[in-house]
């Protein structure tokens, strides 16, 4: 493959991945607690390119690629639901839930009291209190949560919700169901200024208009790259035909 085709094809491939990420964002524009994904473009330097770089010559093979994705953790809009099991965080921080395979972090506060009396998410994962243990409540009574995260039943405090800040959000990977997994080496600290709002839920932070505009951009870039491939093919064809003419 000639360099133009290879570079353009690499660009096309990355645009399809951008489209995949964009499709997922748009599909989740209505998912509470969802955080939009973006991609980071980078250049792949082939060995030839590095050799050329050392010798101060123009580079031969550097290809655009989507090297990693990053999640945009900006706050989503807080939506009033009036449901006492809905809890939203006003600033940074995550709720911590216990699953069979370890701890998961989430911003989606859809909680309920399970049959065993534990405060849990809709998926049945126990929500942890500030002491790192599941919050045990009386299933026959409704609960209230104060802005500081204190859970009470009939004016008697039962415990505090654990709300943790993560040192760098890059250490979080998505697990589906708006849960995040934290890498084991990452550090957490209790969130200080974050308020807990009962009866509200944090909406998705995807901006559908922005996403649609980006979609058009990706589409046109892809088209341009495809044109580049065609031109490169044409050039190759021309070269062969011209050479053949001279030879004949």
């Amino acid at each position: 493959m000639d360099p133009i085709t290879a570079i353009a094809a690499s660009g096309m491939r990355s645009r399809t991945e951008t489209l995949d990420a964009l499709a997922n964002n748009i599909a989740n524009a209505g998912t509470a607690g969802y955080k939009a994904d973006s991609e980071s473009y980078n250049l792949y330097f082939g060995q030839d390119a590095w050799d050329a770089y050392d010798e101060n010559r123009p580079m031969g093979a550097e290809m655009p690629l989507v090297q990693k994705d990053w999640t945009n953790f900006t706050q989503g809009t807080l939506l009033e639901t009036g449901n006492m099991g809905d809890v939203a965080l006003t600033s940074e921080g995550f709720f911590v839930v216990q699953t069979a395979s370890g701890l998961l972090y989430t911003r989606t506060g859809h909680f309920r009291i399970g049959k065993s009396g534990k405060l849990e998410t809709l998926d049945g994962y126990a929500v942890l209190g500030s002491n790192g243990k599941a919050l045990q409540l009386d299933p026959t009574k409704p609960f209230t949560i104060s802005p500081s995260g204190q859970v009470s039943q009939e004016n008697a405090a039962v415990g505090n919700l654990q709300i943790l800040n993560v040192d760098t959000v890059d250490n979080l990977t998505k697990r589906g169901g708006t849960y995040f997994m934290l890498s084991p080496t990452a550090k957490t600290s209790p969130a200080k200024d974050t308020q807990v709002m009962q009866g509200k839920i944090e909406g998705s932070n995807v901006e559908p208009t922005q996403a649609t505009v980006k979609l058009v951009g990706v589409l046109r870039q892809f088209e341009a790259l495809q044109k580049a491939v065609r031109i490169a093919t044409e050039m190759g064809k021309e070269a062969v035909e011209q050479v053949a003419k001279v030879g004949g």
């Binding site: 995949d20 997922n24 994904d37 980078n42 082939g46 090297q67 994705d69």
Partner: peptide, 26 residues
Amino acid sequence: QPGAASGSQTTAAAGLQLGLGAKPSA
């Protein structure tokens, strides 16, 4: 990502995760 980690001078590539959409949960 093919090639991303193989270049000697490239920065360590973090994973690329692509989501597969949304579902109504409740």
